[in-house]
């Protein structure tokens, strides 16, 4: 289980996270929603151990990422798979080499076995035959799929998705969401996703958490969030502009 307690972070005197609290159940899909600039990516970076908070704790399987050495954090990261917003594929490597990279660098598997697993991994995301191409030679949607294949190749326990559908057309958004749901069902990993895709995410999430002004203002199953009486939540999921006042009041 991932447990976040009182997470606080500021940059140059500007507070981005203000005592954020959240629990993520094992095997669930938890989606964090919220406006741009609300601190979602900063929060995700704390979960990944890329940032240290000013105060608070991030517990992953009982290990507090904020109070252990880099080696201990790496041990927790061995259980992670991460899909970055832009894919973060290594542009000097082909798609197959990208997917093979974690296996090549972190396991003792032979070349033939790695090749076999990469082929299976790419097939799982519907990208047979794309292996020899470089990331710049394929479309944005395909890059996201390669990134998902790379994140899942080591069969991680926890997978983080940082806005995996940003910049894609609605058909591709649904296709990526379907893929994530399908892979989650097959591998049973815990998924933490940051997304803006309303209402599509309500179809795949077990839990939705609304992050606003550095805090989780509402958390629960999709139906509870959709029926929430919190004006901030309602304004966000309905995509209403600021005249409603909810965001202004809260700010």
């Amino acid at each position: 289980m991932i447990k976040v307690e009182g997470l606080t972070k500021s940059f140059d005197g500007q507070m981005v996270l203000r005592g954020l609290e959240l629990e993520v159940r094992d095997g669930s899909i938890t989606i964090i929603i919220g406006r741009s600039g609300g601190g979602k990516s900063v929060f995700l970076k704390h979960l990944l151990g890329l940032l240290r908070p000013d105060a608070g704790r991030v517990l992953v399987g009982g290990v507090d990422l904020t109070g252990v050495s880099r080696r201990e954090i790496d041990r927790v990261r061995d259980r992670y798979g991460v899909v970055f917003q832009g894919g973060a594929l290594f542009d000097s490597l082909t798609c197959a080499q990208n997917v093979a990279f974690p296996l090549r660098e972190k396991t003792r598997l032979g070349r033939a076995e790695i090749t076999k697993r990469v082929e299976v991994g790419l097939a799982q995301v519907g990208l047979e035959g794309v292996g020899p191409k470089y990331p710049e030679e394929i479309s944005g949607g395909m890059r996201k799929r390669v990134a998902i294949a790379r994140a899942l190749i080591t069969e991680p326990e926890i997978v983080f998705f940082d806005e995996p559908t940003t910049g894609l057309d609605p058909i591709l958004v649904n296709s990526i969401h379907g893929l994530i749901q399908d892979l989650h069902r097959r591998f049973g990993f815990t998924a933490v996703m940051v997304s803006h895709e309303i209402p599509e995410i309500f179809g795949i999430a077990d839990t939705v958490a609304m992050l606003h002004d550095g805090r989780i203002v509402e958390v629960g199953p999709p139906e509870a969030i959709q029926g929430s009486r919190n004006p901030i939540v309602q304004q966000f999921i309905r995509g209403q502009p600021d005249e409603g006042g909810a965001f202004k009041e809260s700010g």
């Binding site: 990944l48 151990g49 890329l50 790496d74 041990r75 990261r77 061995d78 992670y80 991460v82 970055f84 917003q85 832009g86 973060a88 594929l89 290594f90 542009d91 990279f101 974690p102 660098e105 972190k106």
Partner: peptide
């Protein structure tokens, strides 16, 4: 800036 260094880091490399 394209998060490739972060990708290495979160792979525990």
């Amino acid at each position: 800036i394209t998060e490739q260094i972060d990708a290495l880091t979160v792979m525990a490399l």
